[in-house]
């Protein structure tokens, strides 16, 4: 697997991840700090399936099953966190998801079956770059259409004003739980793709820092914008790598330069690159 190929693969996986967090954070306005936990839960669950329990089926079918396993495992985790936390208003979800991310990582560390701290090896190579981008495309389409349907509108109204949303007949808890569970599940799909392209998983792949990076991708692109999420994911995956090639001092200082660039950007455009907008060729009149 070449270097550029590897980067491109990560771009695709991060697009899916960012889109999934955008549903929770950007659309619904719920603050989740444990997205890497759902990603990890999906990755490990799907890998457990394909390593230990794989059915004698053609590889693409097994990959589809692995994706389903990843989705379900992460979505169940989402339900478990979401049901108690989403009933409350405020920052409880952020705290609970923060804890959840760590629980997942530490549980994996201590599970001998999946290699514990040595990492999970010998995962079959069931997916490739086409899988990754096909899934990213389907998820992007899903998000686009969701945004333009009544359910999407209801979810977005919760971000804007919970009390008014409820007064418009939106069931707050159900809508929040829906976006949280589906968002978690899609992160699980990204996990399945990650496992079956990298063929190796390590608990540190899913630590708190990655949750923050995914969150930064969402915020950079603009909370609530599907195209923004895609571009946020692309930029944040490519720029740190591109800085390696800037040569000399820049390459050495890239992990300092990169955050500074982010800070400058957030000062210049606090709503993110796109705000809640999509890239569109239609002209809008905005007063």
């Amino acid at each position: 697997m070449g270097y550029y190929h590897g980067i491109l693969l990560l771009v695709g996986i991060f697009i899916t991840l960012t889109l999934s967090l955008n549903l929770i954070n950007g659309f619904c306005g719920q603050f989740s700090l444990g997205h890497a936990g759902f990603w990890g839960a999906g990755a490990y669950a799907s890998a457990v399936y394909s390593v230990f329990y794989a059915l004698p089926l053609p590889a693409p079918v097994n990959m589809l099953i692995a994706i389903a396993v990843g989705f379900i495992a992460a979505a169940i985790c989402g339900l478990i966190i979401g049901i108690p936390c989403l009933r409350l208003r405020g920052d409880y979800l952020a705290i609970a998801t923060l804890g959840f991310g760590e629980i997942v990582r530490i549980s994996i560390m201590n599970t001998e079956m999946v290699g514990g701290p040595r990492g999970f090896i010998n995962i079959p190579h069931l997916a490739n770059i086409w899988w990754v981008f096909a899934v990213a495309f389907v998820i992007a389409l899903f998000m686009f259409n969701l945004k333009r349907s009544a359910f999407g509108r209801a979810i977005i109204s919760i971000r804007e004003d919970e009390i008014a949303a409820e007064n418009m007949g939106v069931n707050l808890f159900n809508s929040k739980l829906f976006s949280f569970t589906i968002g978690a599940g899609i992160a699980g799909i990204a996990g399945a793709l990650f496992a079956h392209t990298q063929q190796f998983l390590h608990p540190s792949n899913f630590n708190f820092m990655w949750s923050v990076i995914i969150l930064v991708m969402v915020i950079l692109g603009g909370q609530g914008s599907v195209t923004g999420s895609i571009i946020g994911a692309v930029i944040l995956t490519i720029v740190p790598e591109a800085l390696r090639y800037a040569g000399g001092t820049v390459a050495e200082w890239r992990m300092t330069i990169f955050p500074v660039l982010l800070i400058i950007l957030m000062m210049a455009k606090p709503e993110g690159l796109f705000g809640a907008h999509e890239i569109s060729f239609r002209k809008r009149s905005e007063g």
Binding site: L146, R148, S149, R153, A164, A165
Partner: peptide
């Protein structure tokens, strides 16, 4: 308490939430 960052039309459409008769997948597909 308007939905400040949504358009005027979307604000009104949202209020139709309980009067909408299509399913979730209908919207996605």
């Amino acid at each position: 308490r308007l939905f400040k960052n949504l358009t005027v039309l979307d604000n009104i459409k949202l209020a139709k939430h309980t009067r909408i008769h299509y399913g979730f997948w209908s919207g996605i597909m």
